[in-house]
Amino acid sequence: MRFRFVAAEILHGFRRNLSMIGAVILVTFVSLSAVGAALMLQMQVDRLKGDWYGKVEVSIFLCPVDPVDIANCAGGAVTQDQKNAVRTRLESPEMAPYVAQVFEQDRESVLAEYYERYGEDYLPGQLTVDAFGPVLHVKLTEPVDETKFDVVTDTVSTMPGVLEAVDQSDLLGQLFDLVGKIRLAALAAAGVLALAAVLLITTTIRLSALSRQRETGIMRLVGASNLFIQLPFMLEGAVAALLGSVLAVATLWGGSQFLVAEWVETNFALLMGKVNPLDALAVAPWLVGAAVVLAGLSSALTLRRFTRV
């Protein structure tokens, strides 16, 4: 009886407040979708971080024959001794936790690669093999993270015969920064929308309470408990918010399954890897929880004032 009665009251409230309830559902839906998308983006990036860094190596450019204006290269082309010293340093026990492998690329191969990339007639006549020194490619130990690059470059960059030690981790760093900013923007938008959701739910409860003043008045008069009087209102907001969160989860799942996954796979397979639609289910409990918190917060804000004994 109690359950049926409360369920009937909620349904009744829904019908009376249809547009308000619709607004609550939509706002929580959009807000939680933004939160969910941000969370999923983060999951994807965390998963790929290792992959991405794993593909990046440190390249140590050694001094060429042609004079360059760098203190380490004051003595002209790198000597065999200098090169050996760098290799020995890289292969020393202190560097073992960072360096997995070192292999050398000779000047001719560097030039060939250069031509391959930019074409034979790039700077024709001026470019000779003397413009390039040999390059030491350093592969880092797994799992690779951003700190390891710095250790290796810092160690060798001041050694004589080293023109420059570079890695592409900075590029990745910029990419991660961008991802971080996108995520922050999504969360900020979600926060504003969540505030809107709380205000909307509060207003819905208030309207609902006002339109049912006679009922609640009688309930109080005949001795219905506070919980019994307030439950339909609380549940009305909670059910609407929950519907919003369910819609958000469904959208995230469907979106990652049918839209993003395909798009990413055709365009950014190398960069992004596979998007896993099941991530949507992993974030689902958080979104549903957030919906419950939103609704609970709103109820707590309103009910005290509108359904007093």
Partner: peptide, 11 residues
């Protein structure tokens, strides 16, 4: 019946 329902009386 409302007065009985809201104090949880059985059907």
């Amino acid at each position: 019946a409302f007065a009985m329902q809201v104090i949880g009386r059985p059907r």
